[in-house]
Write a protein that binds this DNA or RNA. Structure first.
Lengths: 229, 229
DNA sequence: CAAATAGTGTCTTTGAGACACTATCGT
DNA sequence: ACGATAGTGTCTCAAAGACACTATTTG
């Protein structure tokens, strides 16, 4: 080890003679909306442990990169995504969460529109796919490690946060209609909303454009962009 | 080149002899209310780096203990506290946050009544003390590492969370008066509340006892206990 | 009695919820 | 015209805010 014995005494009389470091990873919960369902991007593990099982994409944190840099590297390398929204979710530190060795995982929640995700996945050669979060959580699919629990926690975070924070916009393209925005909110909240009430609530968070949807056999819908304050 | 390091695949044949691992610590933000001020417990560093500066109490995470176990160990050994409320706050991973080496810190917010904290500090031989959070944050005191930023983040979390969560109870003894509870809320929120409105809002979160305060030259106040649902 | 804090009743204001109505496309 | 979805006006109701009032202790 590079570090000296003395350096180990960080605010503690920690016995460095038995000192072993855990490994640290970041794990990504990449969420999007597809066909009116909340979806999570998972990869198929091609090696032990949990071979052939689904897992969250992730990576070890290098000694010379921040956690956020590890997330950005992972997003770009594994999914081809740059400059998308993400936030730290929770740090998971159970001793036996990886059967081989001690790994502490800092999980990050990432939100992206299906359009952008699909474009990236098309350009990359990818071994991952989208899965319905509700299906995953109803236990019909077993995940590697504690990744099922992590997805459940991410699902709760999103449901809570959408009530007081404008995260729904992250799941839409730059230009969107209010019915689209309402549908995203309904999916995240798990319940229907009244159109008029929803609009009153969010109208000051958007700016209308002069553009409209077209081609469908009903009244066109005005396109809006997000208001950044 | 360095890319091979960053390219290591998640949970692949990870060879710990090649890749350098960061160290992992837990850092505790122990908050209490004293003399109508939000206080944080800090220790004086007796070694480099940041010698003679104030820092959050913390500890390395052992290879065979969970993050929560590290927090409990640290609370008990350093402050003599057991079974108090704590929750994970945020994980700090900047590369240079410790000038000696790479340390990733998982911070935990702990709340405790002054009565309980003071009793513990009296029993222990302690090198830490309570400091006003507002004073710390108004930059009159410089802290070791990024601990000033961590305290600021903890302050924000508490201010936000008190609006929708019953954390104020954690800062009071088991039996308390409603004026005491209101005062705690006012300190955390940073603004005065109307007595009648406050009581309407929290009355279903408490259970009245038959006891009253006494000895002060005004009307006695009824004692309540928290209602656990 | 006065001073001080504990505790309550009620009017006002605000925002969420419910629902009915009108508007504009394609066929 | 009709079916379908976009978009608006307004009544109701519940919670938050503001404020005035009463109650009970010590000195």
């Amino acid at each position: 080890m590079v570090e000296s014995n003395k350096d180990m005494q960080y605010l503690d009389n920690y016995d460095s003679s038995i000192y072993k470091k855990p490994s640290v990873t970041v794990d990504l919960i990449i969420l999007t909306i597809f066909e009116n369902k909340l979806m999570v991007y998972l990869v198929n593990r091609d090696q032990s442990p949990f071979i052939n099982m689904l897992a969250l994409p992730g990576s070890f944190v290098s000694i010379d990169e921040t956690l956020e840099e590890a997330v950005e590297r992972c997003l770009e390398r594994k999914v081809g995504l740059k400059n998308i929204y993400f936030e730290q979710l929770f740090t998971w530190g159970d001793v036996k969460r990886d059967p081989r060795m001690r790994i502490i995982s800092v999980s990050y929640l990432a939100l992206v529109s299906f359009e952008m995700l699909n474009k990236s996945l098309g350009e990359q050669g990818i071994n991952g796919h989208l899965f319905s979060v509700e299906e995953i959580l109803s236990k019909r699919i077993n995940l590697a490690f504690d990744h099922g629990e992590i997805i459940k926690y991410a699902r709760e975070r999103v449901t809570n946060k959408v009530e007081y924070s404008p995260i729904a916009f992250e799941l839409l393209p730059d230009k969107f209609t209010l019915p689209q925005l309402q549908r995203i909110n309904e999916i995240l909240l798990g319940k229907d909303l009244y159109k008029a009430n929803f609009r009153k609530k969010i109208i000051d968070q958007v700016i209308e454009t002069n553009e409209f949807t077209s081609g469908e056999n009903h009244r066109p819908s005005k396109l809006y962009v997000r208001r950044m304050n």
